[in-house]
Nucleic acid binder design. Structure first.
Lengths: 348, 348
DNA sequence: TTGTACGCGTTATCAT
DNA sequence: ATGATAACGCGTACAA
């Protein structure tokens, strides 16, 4: 009888993790590993960080104990010690915009590949939320921050944390990564002309959206060069306002145009829908071109011709630049414009 | 002359933050505030955490110093002390799926409202990435975790951290929040019948996608009850595979059906495009209904009829339940099924 | 190769 | 009302 009991206990201690931990909800620490193995804390630390000699026998024992106790190093303690966490902050306006959703996803993937975690903040372009996000990121002592369409130019300038800004040019010191929006605007106009459009409209984004402004400027520049005119309808939001807009778009009848360049894909799909609903044949009567090449352009019918900015490439560039900064590299170049290209689909 | 110099110096010390901090890249700590104010660390701590007496004069001085030194409490140190960070972990398969993008956004917003930050991991349904995500979240001592479509049932069961699982039922102990998918499937069938459909098809999601299976089961259940038959085409992915699928969908000619229920919106929009491209008149010849009510359904033409699961409501429920768990509340109910409802649009 | 002792920024306890 | 100090878990000199 006694024998049996003893055996049970042994099985417990050899194979069952919970017997050590289930009484308290507290995670095991490096000290627990030390006690369990009979080795010193320093040795365990060296093993974990691969930062010094530890005999292969000890290594075996430690490895086993870590598994048994389900030990994971406390990143917070590490961060306190180093005065810097292993996290980077991503501040993004909204994940409802598929481009930003994809962007965020890629950023997270790349960061993970390079061994960093990601703290996410969405701001809905609310400046107070953005301010709060920055404050908290400071609190977490993140290694770096990636912002998109930031509205906090002055606060950003004061920050000591490395920053890479997507789309917005904060100041001369802070690195900006963006698609070559100006060039994209030019391409869009050229394409519409090539497709034979005569009466051209540009759906222009909100003024605070710098990238959209550059697209507009490129479009205008090329129009001047080609000596053609175009009308403009201004959107106040890239998404939310537009979404409920079933009745009228601006003060113009947009069905009268035969070529429309829209400042981004989501708005473009909306325009597509607007025109189709009014019986306009696309691309026969009206040709529509967007900007982004986000996946929704491939889902609509007709599918959307667009100017591609490579999310993947841009995300990589952002992360790589940021982590180079983090690692102390001095980067002279402060502006990176990712090439754009025309993706022709069914809408032109 | 001297006077002027002195004044300049004073202005510096009164108003310029950088003069204190620009020499070192190290953030100011509670000790710096202590030194700057001449008060003890303990007093500063009490002020910050509102956890004890501090005279109104001291409070004033501290407040000013915090602003001047741009002090933000070190969350990592707090986390070490409390053995728990102020973060929650969100593990999501992909932000390319607009439903998850919206879900993530809402989760982040709600978490922020309740004073928590968010660490994001995307897994692309890769089980190893998910495992790694969980490991790291343990390392950060997050307060709680929200998973979606988890594939790590056994690992989750071992975890001591509070978990709320979206869609997947992990075990009897772990709370699951999901839309009432079964009911949604029933509603979809009823609706197609009401709209007069005779030859019905179901596009079924990947088997590992539990929620989609429930939608299918509900659909089947209602069909049996109504004594109607339907065919099935199975998708292996909810998005990526389908995305490139321009040629054939399954082994059936789906243009022959007059009513199609698709397991989610993104796949439904794809089906819509497929049919439209082949000249099918929607909804006249074929009616299509999706599931999710994600925003893309409102962008397509014709817009998509769908079964709504309220992202907002579900996100709230997830966060609230999780934080209740975190705060030690004992929640007996382990399954929460959010009501679904039909959103009729143009595709039926 | 291993162990001891200290510092990181907080918070909490206890004394003043 | 305020201050001194121990403790949290980790990493690293430095001593053994």
């Amino acid at each position: 009888m006694t024998h049996i009991v003893i055996r049970v206990v042994n099985i417990f201690f050899n194979h069952c993790v919970t017997c050590y931990t289930e009484e308290g909800a507290i995670d095991s620490s490096i000290r627990d590993i030390s006690k369990a193995t009979g080795l010193s804390i320093a040795t365990i630390s060296r093993y974990i960080n691969d930062s010094g000699y530890v005999s292969s026998e000890s290594a075996e024992v430690i490895k086993k104990a870590i598994k048994e106790l389900d030990y994971v190093p406390n990143e917070n303690a590490r961060a306190v010690f180093k005065n810097s966490s292993n996290l980077i902050g991503i501040v993004v306006s909204s994940l409802s915009n598929p481009f930003f959703a994809e962007m965020t996803m890629h950023l997270e993937e790349k960061a993970q590949e390079r061994g960093y975690g990601v703290i996410l903040f969405t701001t809905n372009d609310d400046i107070d939320k953005e301010r709060e996000a920055i404050r908290l990121l400071k609190g977490y002592r993140v290694k770096g921050i990636i912002t998109t369409r930031t509205q906090l130019k002055s606060e950003m300038s004061k920050l000591k944390t490395p920053i890479v800004s997507f789309e917005t040019e904060v100041n001369d010191k802070i690195i900006t990564v963006a698609a070559d929006n100006f060039k994209g605007g030019q391409l869009a106009l050229k394409h519409l002309l090539e497709r034979g459009c005569k009466k051209i409209l540009h759906i222009r984004g909100p003024k605070s959206f710098e990238a959209a402004e550059l697209r507009y400027l490129g479009f205008k520049d090329e129009a001047k060069r080609q000596n053609v005119n175009f009308d403009i309808v201004q959107f106040d939001s890239d998404f939310h306002v537009a979404y409920n807009l079933e009745e009228n778009i601006g003060d113009k009848d947009i069905t009268e145009y035969d070529g429309i360049f829209v400042f981004n894909d989501i708005a473009a799909v909306l325009i597509l829908r607007y025109l189709l609903k009014r019986g306009v044949n696309i691309p026969k009567e009206t040709k529509v071109i967007g900007f982004d090449n986000s996946y929704i352009g491939g889902l609509s019918y007709p599918s959307l011709t667009t100017i591609e900015q490579s999310v993947d490439g841009i995300a990589s560039k952002c992360i790589n630049l940021l982590l180079d900064l983090v690692e102390g590299k001095n980067i002279k170049e402060k502006r990176f414009y990712d090439p754009v290209k025309l993706i022709q689909r069914e809408s032109t």
